[in-house]
Design a protein around this nucleic acid. Structure first.
Lengths: 150, 150
DNA sequence: TTCTTTGCAAAGGGTTTGCACGAAC
DNA sequence: GTTCGTGCAAACCCTTTGCAAAGAA
């Protein structure tokens, strides 16, 4: 359809190679919870999940690890406008839609959605290297509900 | 070029009609500062500006007014990922680019940039009503600097 | 042993809120 | 006179940080 992404912002934020990651039990459990959940989680959702298995874990540790794991590319840090930071275990390229009714976030596969950065650059003297795109609307459930009660 | 926006998210967040806005001196000064600045300002930048003219104004008042003024459509609330909220007196439709070098935000006119929401809806059962799009890159000054020092 | 990571608790930034007083209409 | 907005200060939420002790390699 349109054109290609020159460069993905998230790539630039990743740690350049760097030393091997020390695999602590906390780290393993956090990653494992992402694998189980397979959705976006806020830091304190992760904290609650991890706490069930390691009651003495601290919130600080969770925050520090989420930061590290996202820099290393194990999870994706997603910061949608005006909301709490979230982390995403699903690393396939996708966008997010926030449902205006239930305020959940759902994934939108990125297959055909591209922003043409060349077109953007024609608007001025700047250089465009990345973008962030998010949607609002109705998730499938809420859409069905809304269509029944018009 | 591409297609049209069905509906702009910011519209939905505006106050539905509602009573007339009471024009306090604080409100006037805030609006006036936006007119003078003609850029994005954070709440505390506004606070500092207003304080020079009304030393007893409170930060709370500034926050409350920015909220109200943006709901009424006098200024635009812009919340870029992972950064402090900003408010924008420029109400022409435009996007924002954050310079990765100086971290300033610059405006990108929206002339030819459109996201085709129909294409997005083909990706799933959800309904898409709005989007938020922001860019990263280099502002004109930093771009020039970067091109001289490759 | 060495270097990283942890738990804890305190501090930080940005923003919101309860309240009694004061200002618009 | 009524309502709405204000100043003030405290509270709030989310996140980060300093430090000494614990744990990986």
């Amino acid at each position: 359809l349109h054109i290609v992404i020159i460069y993905d912002m998230r790539e630039s934020e990743k740690e350049s190679a760097g030393s091997r990651l020390r695999m602590t039990r906390q780290r393993q459990v956090i990653l494992d919870e992402f694998r189980k959940a397979n959705t976006h989680l806020t830091a304190d959702e992760v904290y609650e999940k991890v706490r069930k298995r390691m009651p003495r874990v601290s919130l600080g540790t969770v925050y520090r690890n989420l930061e590290i794991l996202s820099r290393r590319g194990f999870v994706d840090k997603i910061e949608l406008a005006g909301h709490q930071k979230m982390f995403d275990g699903n690393m396939d390229k996708h966008y997010h839609l926030r449902c205006v009714r239930c305020s959940n976030i759902i994934d939108i596969p990125a297959r055909n959605i591209r922003v043409d950065l060349k077109t953007v650059e024609e608007e001025g003297e700047f250089k465009v290297t990345g973008y962030r795109l998010e949607f609002t609307g109705l998730c499938p459930q809420c859409r069905r509900i809304a269509e029944k009660n018009p």
